[in-house]
Design a protein around this nucleic acid. Structure first.
Lengths: 340, 340
DNA sequence: ACTGGCACTCTATTAGCGGGAGTGCCAGCA
DNA sequence: TGCTGGCACTCCCGCTAATAGAGTGCCAGT
C-alpha cells in the first residue's frame, strides 16, 4: 500500500513539529498547528499507517509520534523544498569570509561560519592535494646535507618536507635539481606525478643521481601517500544544545568520533560534484554516530572537487535549512578558490 | 591558628579519596581507608577546623566533606610528593613519539599522548614564532605580480604568505630581494627583526623600493603580528568521564572555551622555564572554566621556551600524576626539538 | 587531647496516587 | 468507502509521604 498525499503531508508536519519542539507530537496538536482540513481521528488513522510502514514510531504506548530514520529519509527525499537563504544569511557569509588572507584562514573562517549558521558541528577538509596541481616546487638548502622541499599547489596550499641527502651538496646542484623538478612537475595534477617522478630519477646524470633518489622518495611521499589529510573542526559546543537527549544520553561516543580524523574524512569524503549529500542516522555506518546526521558537500573551483565540507548534528535537525546553508557555503568557497 | 601535621594529613586523605571516588568523604570512611591512628571523632574535630579555614566544605549539612579550591591549592603546594612516572608510562612516551616525521607530526603526537596518559583534555601550542630564529627565507614568484614568502625557523616551522606587488617583477629582482632579505635576517630571533626589516626598506635602491616595501609589510605581519598562534587539541571526549557532575551540570561552557584559541593560549602561555604551573578553579580568570584546573608547562630546546603545553580537567583531578606526566612530556618534546 | 556515645539533620530512594495527553477502536454519517 | 465524534484504556510524569542511612556536632568520660 502506498502513501497518499495527505499521509505525506502528515509526515511532513510531524517532522517539522518534532524538529522544532523536540517532543513527540500527537494527533491533536497536529491538527491545531497545521491546517490539514481533517479531524484528529483521521490523522490518527494516517499515523497508524505511517507507523506500520516504519516512518514514525512511539517512544511508548500512548505517547506522541517521533520520526524514524526512514521517516527523515522520506522527508528529505520527497518533501523538502529547498528554502533559499535569507538575505541576512547571504550577508553573513560575505561578511565572514571577506578579507581572508591565506588558505589556512579561508578554511578556518569557513568552518566557523558553517558552525555558526547551522548551529551545529562543522567540518571542513583542507583542499586535498591529490586533486590539485603543482604550481611550484622550491628546494631550500637547510644545511649541507639537508634540503627543505616546499610545494605550492594551485589551491594555495603549501607543503614542506625535509630531505636527508646521502652526502654534502653544492648550491649549483640544488639549482639544477630545482630546475629539473619544476620543469617536469609544474602544472601537473598531483595524482599524475608518480611516473614523472620516477622518470626524473632515471634521466638524472650520475653525480646527482643519489641526491635525486632521496628527493624523489620524499616527493612521492608528499605528493601521493597523503594519508594525513588535514581537517578543521568547529562548533563542538553546539552538541549540547537541546539537552543531551539528542544523542541517547551521552555525548561521549560523538566526541570520540569527532577526534578521529579518519572517521570525519569518511563522513565528508567521496562526494559527487554539485550535490549535497545527507546521511541520516546509521546510514553513516559509524557506530558512535548512530543518532547523528551528516550533511556534506564537495567544494572546489568550478565543477572539480578538491575537498569536502559539512555539518554534523542530531538526526532531529532542520534538514531544509541545513542543506541550503551547506550548499551555499560550499559554492561560495569554490568560487573563492577559483578567483584566486 | 595554624594546621598541625595531622590536620594536613587529614586534608591529604580527603583530597585523595575524593579524587578517587568522586563522592563527599566522611570521617568514618577516612579512618577506615587510611591508618590515621585516631578515632573518627577526632577526625571530625580536625575537619571542623579545616572547614573553618576554608580548605574543605560540605555540599549540605550532614554530608561528607569536599575539598575547596583553596584545599586543592594547599594540597598541591605542600602535600604533593612528585610521583615518578611508571616504567610503563615512560615506555608509552617513547613508543608514541618515535618516528615523528615533521613538526606537525610531533605536535599532533604530543597532544594525543598527553590526552591519553592523563585521560584529560590536552593542548599543545605550536612552537611560537617570536621565540624562534629565522633559518631561511624563500621568495617564490607565483605570478608576475605575486610573490610567495616562505619562512623556515630553527624549530622546523614553516610559514608562508602571499605578497601582492605594486607592479610586475623580474626574476632577477626576486633574486636580489631574496639575497638581501636573507643576508639581513637569517639567524636572527624573530623578536629582534622589526628594526632590521625597517632598515631593509631604507637601504633599498629606488627601482626595487616599492616591491621591498610590500614585502616588508608582509614580513612584519608574519614575523611579529603573530596574533594567530596555532594550537592542537585532543581528548575532548575525556570531559565526559565521571559524569557531567564535574562541570556543574553542563559541558557547554567548557566546550565553548576550548574553541577559543585566545583562551587556550592564555591558559598555557606566559610560563616560566623549567616549572610546571597549576591553575586551580577560578585562578584561571576565565568564567567558563570556573570548575576546571589546568596543568601546564613550557617546552623548548634546552632552557628556552618556544611554546606551552598542558592539560585541562575538572578541579577534582589527580594532581600529582598529572603534574608528573605533563612535566615529563614537556621535557621529552624539548629534547626532541633540541636534537633536530 | 582523644574517645565513645547519642541525638539530630539532611539526602536519596521508594512507593503510591492522580492528572493528563494520547491512543485505538467503534458505531454512525456523508 | 472514507471521515468523524465519542469513549475506554494505557502509560508517563509529577507530587507527596515515608523510610533508611550516612554523617555530623556535641558532651561527658578517660
Amino acid at each position: 500500500m502506498s502513501l497518499d498525499d495527505r499521509k505525506l503531508e502528515v509526515l511532513r508536519a510531524i517532522v517539522e513539529d518534532y524538529v522544532e519542539t523536540q517532543e513527540p507530537v500527537g494527533s491533536k496538536a497536529l491538527v491545531d498547528r497545521h491546517k490539514l482540513g481533517v479531524s484528529s481521528a483521521t490523522v490518527r488513522n494516517d499515523m497508524a499507517v505511517l507507523e506500520d510502514e516504519g516512518y514514525i514510531r512511539q517512544p511508548h504506548t500512548s505517547a506522541g509520534r517521533v520520526p524514524t530514520d526512514a521517516g527523515y529519509r522520506l522527508f528529505v527525499d520527497r518533501l523538502t523544498r529547498i528554502k533559499p537563504l535569507s538575505p541576512a544569511e547571504r550577508r553573513a557569509i560575505e561578511r565572514f569570509m571577506v578579507g581572508a588572507v591565506d588558505l589556512d584562514d579561508v578554511v578556518h573562517r569557513t568552518v566557523r561560519l558553517l558552525a555558526q549558521l547551522t548551529r551545529q558541528v562543522a567540518v571542513v577538509q583542507y583542499p586535498s592535494l591529490s586533486r590539485s596541481a603543482v604550481r611550484h616546487l622550491e628546494l631550500v638548502p637547510v644545511s649541507t646535507t639537508r634540503l627543505m622541499v616546499v610545494m605550492i599547489t594551485d589551491t594555495g596550499r603549501v607543503e614542506q618536507r625535509l630531505v636527508e641527502l646521502p652526502g654534502p651538496i653544492q648550491d649549483g646542484d640544488v639549482w639544477e635539481l630545482r630546475r629539473r623538478v619544476n620543469e617536469k612537475l609544474t602544472g601537473q595534477r598531483l595524482a599524475d606525478t608518480p611516473p614523472l617522478v620516477q622518470k626524473l630519477v632515471e634521466d638524472c646524470d650520475f653525480e646527482r643521481r643519489a641526491a635525486m633518489t632521496c628527493l624523489a622518495s620524499v616527493l612521492l611521499e608528499t605528493l601521493v601517500d597523503r594519508s594525513e589529510e588535514r581537517l578543521a573542526l568547529a562548533g563542538t559546543a553546539n552538541l549540547t544544545r537541546g539537552g543531551v537527549l539528542d544523542f541517547q544520553g551521552t555525548l561521549r561516543p560523538v566526541l570520540e568520533a569527532l577526534e578521529e580524523e579518519v572517521i570525519l574524512l569518511k563522513l565528508i569524503g567521496d562526494l559527487e560534484p554539485r550535490t549535497t549529500r545527507v546521511l541520516i542516522g546509521d546510514e553513516n555506518q559509524i557506530d558512535n554516530l548512530r543518532s547523528a546526521s551528516v550533511v556534506s558537500s564537495g567544494y572546489g573551483p568550478g565543477t572539480t572537487i578538491v575537498g569536502g565540507l559539512g555539518v554534523l548534528g542530531p538526526t532531529r535537525m532542520d534538514y531544509p535549512g541545513t542543506i541550503a546553508t551547506v550548499r551555499a557555503v560550499a559554492r561560495y568557497v569554490g568560487d573563492l578558490l577559483a578567483q584566486n
